[in-house]
Amino acid sequence: MIRKLGLWLIWLGFIVYVVWFAPPLNIKLLYFLNPVALSAFSMVGIWLLIYSCLIFADGRMQQIPAWGFMLASIASGTVGLIPYLALREPNDQFSGEKDPWLALLDSKATGIVLTISTVVFLLFAIVFGDWSLFVQSFQTDKFIHGMSLALVLFALLFPYPTLLSDDMARRGLIKESQFFWIVALIPLFGPLAYLCLRPNIPTLK
């Protein structure tokens, strides 16, 4: 109950802050063509794919369909994702066959591709980006501001609502192990390493 309440408060607080307290929408092409902003926008997609690699398998065992929330998150980021995390019930089981989509998300190759893509995007931002311009756009533009905060939320929420620990248990890994904390405490690259190293889900009919 506390977990669910906490997630709903985070969800509501994020919406209220972005709508009423974040800087106004100040669309400038210079902001959005900055490699740092482009890379940050790409990181939203990376995070959604990271979550998808856990959520679609988890959704098989939930009463609520995962795909609807993930489609909503494509347009709204954490605003579409958090309700799924709040509504799902802890469950570390998986039954039935994996369809091609689940098999793809369950593959270590997917984690490797996401890791390589992340490194490319970060190097693009570091080498070619204007970081002072990004700080200025964060301070003056609602879209850049909200997107940046969403990236922080993606990282903070990944280990919180039992999604990660359930996925580990589903694969025969020990919940709350040292591996769990390495994945949880290293932003972005912890989850990416987990996708590259985790065993495949054993199918139970």
Rank of each mutant, 00 (worst) to 15 (best):
P90N: 03
G45V: 06
V79D: 01
W47I: 05
C53K: 04
F121R: 09
N26Q: 11
W47H: 13
G172M: 02
D141I: 07
K98A: 09
F138W: 14
A125E: 12
L7H: 04
G96F: 05
V19P: 00
L102Q: 08
G80K: 06
I112V: 15
G6H: 07
W101G: 11
A109K: 13
K4T: 15
I186Q: 07
M43L: 15
F179Y: 15
A75G: 11
P159C: 06
S132H: 14
Y17G: 02
F158Q: 04
P35R: 11
I50G: 03
V119D: 01
V120A: 10
F124P: 03
P161Y: 08
V135P: 01
A86T: 13
L133H: 06
I64E: 11
V113K: 11
L197F: 15
L102N: 00
Y31C: 02
P161C: 01
C53A: 15
W20F: 15
T203A: 14
I55Q: 06
I15P: 00
S76Q: 06
L173D: 05
L9D: 02
S42A: 15
S137Y: 04
Y51M: 10
E176Q: 11
I116T: 07
L157K: 08
L192S: 09
L30D: 08
F21Q: 10
L153K: 05
L153V: 05
S107N: 14
I50V: 15
V119R: 01
D167N: 04
S165I: 11
G172E: 02
L156G: 01
V16W: 12
Q62G: 10
K28G: 12
V19R: 13
S42N: 06
L197S: 09
A22N: 01
P100V: 02
S177Q: 12
T115D: 01
S52Q: 03
G77N: 01
G77L: 05
F180I: 07
W181A: 05
L157H: 12
L123E: 10
Q178I: 00
L48W: 04
L9W: 07
K98N: 01
L192A: 07
D167Q: 01
G172W: 01
L188S: 10
E89D: 14
L87E: 12
L173W: 10
P35F: 11
P161M: 01
A72C: 09
L48S: 03
P23A: 06
V44K: 07
L9Y: 10
P202K: 13
E89K: 13
R171Q: 04
L38T: 03
R170G: 10
S52C: 03
P191F: 02
F56Q: 14
V135W: 12
S148M: 05
G6M: 07
E97H: 08
